[in-house]
Design a protein around this nucleic acid. Structure first.
Lengths: 265, 265
DNA sequence: CCATCTTTGTGCACGCGTTCACAAAGACAT
DNA sequence: ATGTCTTTGTGAACGCGTGCACAAAGATGG
């Protein structure tokens, strides 16, 4: 999961838990696939399998939306697609601006999953004058000088930041000032925004680091202790680990019991 | 946060909670920035602000790693960078293959955040013969026929899937069969993998949908009830919502009290 | 050496999310 | 109509994560 939720104090919006909201798109995708195969109804068990979740969780999730199932039969696929779409606000059109048309921005501009879900790329914006006017994914890039004008004219409330980290906060501020109230941030920075503005972030490198953690753990478990420690010492010297400041050598203790943490000399 | 965690039964790996692991990269980034500015020590309060989290949470997170702070002073930046890096497994080199070199794959190949964290792009793989040999971000694309060979020769254990959804499971199966045990999935599909293989997914469209939900809620709160319902009816007819199968018209009830859900005729 | 002040590390309580397990509801056959 | 069988919807228990608040630890100054 590449999603870093930004500290919402677990505000349950209209009684629907945040965790449930995060799963609704998952259900919607599975249901859309069923709909395309003209499947009329689906049980919670089947749908849960398709979405990769527990069936009890799915039923509880749907129960927050209302009673949309029929006992003994299951859920009507078309009806559920509609209800979830409505709940997520996908029955209306959402104009979106993408700021920062580098590799990633271009990839996002051409991403098919947006248009099919009610999201319309209203504008691509980049600070590089050389990019201005150049079509990317069929849409001409506009210069960032016009950012405020574009947002106000199109009534854009969702912005995507795909700029370098250095200018992300600055771009964010301009977006917010111009009226954007939801931001999807791909830049590796913590954005600070006023209350009332939602920020979600996607960080590619964080996801890999989490995988690396588990990968290391797996490797450490099969070849136990010795091999692990050996690797540790080796890379440790390679990286030239710093000693803690006031390390008088005595009281540093590891997390598990009294086993000292690997402390390279 | 664009991250969809794949059902790990909350297995606390070596005593470090999953939620903490997910935050470690965040701390690491903030610490790296401090390190580059040659800041020697940092308090939990300062670091927490930089990482966008609560200071108590940060201290508790670090306490899982061991006692690495000095009371009255704070944390030694360099030492903490090293400890977190080690814990995440970033002191070793992780070769990574990226499969599917479309717009997104190319963006990932050129993403700077990988190399700087110990991840090395070992190979770019695409099924299109026209792509074979073409350099992307300085690395020549290889054909997918050679996938197994590449993985085995380089000892790759982490794979990134950036293919269309239709072939993602197939690619995943081949990766796993060849020895990959961690997968970062950008394709909008639920991947099924054997036990012992970790999957994390990043779904761009899901993040936007979650934002749309909150955006809709915000819009619905300021202009109350009437306006909201009006919009609802309008879009409802536009989308031609299906009626539930056995809808005899009576017992359908909404989530909040007895207020009936908006049910277009 | 003692007092004071800063900051960590953590015990504790609370709330959200997950899961189990089952009663209620409806379909379907007889 | 009645009984059986399937599947939903949910009450309740449990566990994880979060945040408060404070005691312990160490630095610093006299």
């Amino acid at each position: 999961m590449a999603t870093g939720r930004t500290h919402r104090p677990a505000t349950r919006s209209r009684g629907i838990p945040e965790a449930t909201v995060a799963r609704l798109p998952l259900y919607l995708r599975a249901l859309t696939a069923l709909s395309e195969r003209s499947v009329p109804t689906v049980s919670s068990e089947e749908l849960a399998a398709a979405a990769g979740v527990n069936s009890a969780k799915l039923r509880k999730d749907f129960s927050y939306l209302g009673s949309y199932g029929t006992r003994g039969v299951g859920y009507d696929v078309e009806y559920l697609v509609y209800q979830i779409s409505r709940e997520l606000g996908l029955t209306q059109d959402w104009p979106v601006v993408i700021v920062g048309i580098g590799n990633l921005g271009a990839a996002l501009a051409g991403y098919g999953g947006f248009a099919s879900r009610g999201f319309r790329v209203a504008a691509l914006i980049d600070a590089d004058p050389a990019m201005t006017g150049k079509p990317v994914a069929g849409i001409p890039v506009q210069h960032s000088d016009d950012l405020e004008k574009i947002i106000e004219e199109d009534g854009v409330s969702i912005g995507v930041i795909a700029t370098p980290a250095g200018v992300a906060q600055q771009v964010c501020d301009r977006l917010v000032a111009a009226g954007v109230t939801s931001i999807l941030n791909f830049a590796p920075t913590v954005l600070s925004v006023p209350d009332g503005v939602d920020v979600r972030k996607v960080d590619l490198s964080i996801e890999l680091q989490i995988l690396a953690f588990h990968e290391q753990r797996k490797a450490g478990e099969e070849s136990n202790a010795e091999a692990d420690a050996a690797v540790d010492e080796e890379t440790a010297t390679a990286v030239a680990p710093p000693a803690p400041r006031g390390a008088t050598g005595g009281s540093r203790k590891g997390p598990d019991g009294d086993v000292p943490a690997v402390m390279p000399a």
